[in-house]
């Protein structure tokens, strides 16, 4: 029985510059932030990042690690615009493949199903077609003869996702109201790393939850990382909500290089333990 437990450092140590990297979660919700922070401590760069974008995209953009972003948006949810994403776009820091939210889902689905594309009605007539000249259309072979957009498969070299619980073999469980697309990210990727709040015995996964909560199957998982608070500052219901004060501090710090350097020094210059300790200190100062 294979034990896939590893540290965040070991997981990101398997990533290489130039890879196409899928990041799970959605906006500022259940993002594998500890894995992203660990990635920032490596020199892996030149990434093609595929994400329903949130502060994962923001942090990687701020550090100059993105060569190309594949996304429908980047947002902090309670703060509509992701400041590092908008700044990076405005200085032309990376290439963007801008897709619609549903196209993105069908692109991941195509990759997971080992199909070259899936047809969708979305994007016809919109400038998504103009800014993505590689998009092609496909005509129905049936009597309707309708023309659709052929969303290309979003195949990934690696995926990073964060869930509430997992066992050491890679069976992973979400306990909140939305699975997002983390299973699809894992299926669309050649290697997938699941971080979780807590690693539990397989027999305990269903102690307090229904079988439908078992989202990710171990056949699609390369490594399992236990990292409590690993989605911070994004939400990880029901374990914790989004850390709104901290997110506001992040967004404010992103406004200019000097405050961002101070934020980086304070929160992102050490390991995950140092980060969590600095976050605790941040909250103690506020009370």
């Amino acid at each position: 029985m294979s034990d896939k437990t590893m540290s965040a450092e070991e997981a990101v140590g398997r990533l290489r510059s130039g890879m196409t990297l899928g990041i799970g979660g959605w906006g500022s919700r259940r993002k594998p932030m500890a894995l992203v922070r660990a990635l920032l401590r490596t020199d892996v760069t030149d990434l093609t990042v595929v994400s329903y974008g949130g502060p994962d995209v923001g942090l990687l953009a701020a550090a100059g690690r993105i060569r190309k972003l594949v996304a429908a948006f980047a947002t902090l949810d309670s703060i509509p615009l992701e400041p590092h994403f908008t700044a990076a776009r405005q200085r032309g820091a990376f290439a963007l493949e801008e897709l619609d939210e549903a196209m993105f889902m069908w692109g991941l689905t195509a990759a997971a199903q080992r199909l070259p594309f899936l047809p969708v009605r979305a994007a016809l007539g919109s400038d998504v077609m103009k800014v993505n000249p590689r998009l092609r259309t496909v005509t129905s072979p049936y009597d309707d003869g309708e023309e659709f957009v052929a969303v290309p498969a979003l195949r990934l070299d690696a995926a990073l996702v964060h869930l509430n619980r997992a066992d050491s073999r890679g069976n992973a469980q979400y306990l909140g109201p939305d699975p997002y697309f983390d299973d699809l990210f894992c299926q669309a990727a050649d290697t997938a790393y699941v971080s979780c709040e807590q690693i539990v015995d397989t027999a305990d996964l269903l102690k307090d939850a229904a079988p439908q909560s078992l989202l990710v199957k171990r056949a699609f998982v390369t490594g399992v990382v236990e990292t409590p608070g690993g989605a911070h500052f994004t939400s990880c219901a029901p374990d914790y909500d989004r850390d709104e004060p901290f997110q506001r501090a992040y967004a404010q710090a992103a406004r200019d290089p000097e405050t961002w350097r101070a934020f980086t020094d304070r929160f992102l210059s050490g390991d995950e333990q140092a980060y969590q300790a600095a976050v605790t200190a941040f909250h103690e100062e506020r009370t």
């Binding site: 429908a72 948006f73 615009l81 801008e98 897709l99 619609d100 919109s126 998504v128």
Partner: peptide
């Protein structure tokens, strides 16, 4: 830069 196209298409 604003949100991105989101689900508008």
């Amino acid at each position: 830069q604003l949100l991105g196209v989101r689900g508008a298409p």
